[in-house]
């Protein structure tokens, strides 16, 4: 694994994770969570786990985000924290 590239990806992952739990707009938080999953999947593709990366990209970043958007649209978009 190329160290700098790896570290940049990890940085992105951390930024996305922190942003996802701090943003007050739930729809944005959910979409950022999708981005988080996607960076995670790149990281795993880097570690030669393409099957897992593929699954993560389709399952977690794809359907998971869709479901969460659905739930947010059925409930409230604003959150207090």
């Amino acid at each position: 694994m190329i160290l700098p590239f790896d570290l940049i990806l990890v940085l992105f992952v951390y930024i996305c994770a922190i942003a996802a739990i701090t943003i007050k707009d739930l729809l944005s938080a959910v979409v950022i969570l999708g981005a988080y999953s996607f960076f995670m999947c790149l990281l795993w593709a880097q570690m030669a786990a393409i099957d897992v990366a593929f699954t993560e990209a389709s399952v977690s970043a794809g359907i998971g985000t869709v479901l969460m958007i659905g739930a947010v649209s059925k409930t409230k978009r604003r959150s207090n924290d």
């Binding site: 739990i21 959910v30 969570l33 924290d81």
Partner: peptide, 11 residues
């Protein structure tokens, strides 16, 4: 917030 908890669970 409950959705935030779910996001945390995912992470």
């Amino acid at each position: 917030n409950l959705v935030k908890k779910i996001i945390g669970m995912n992470i």
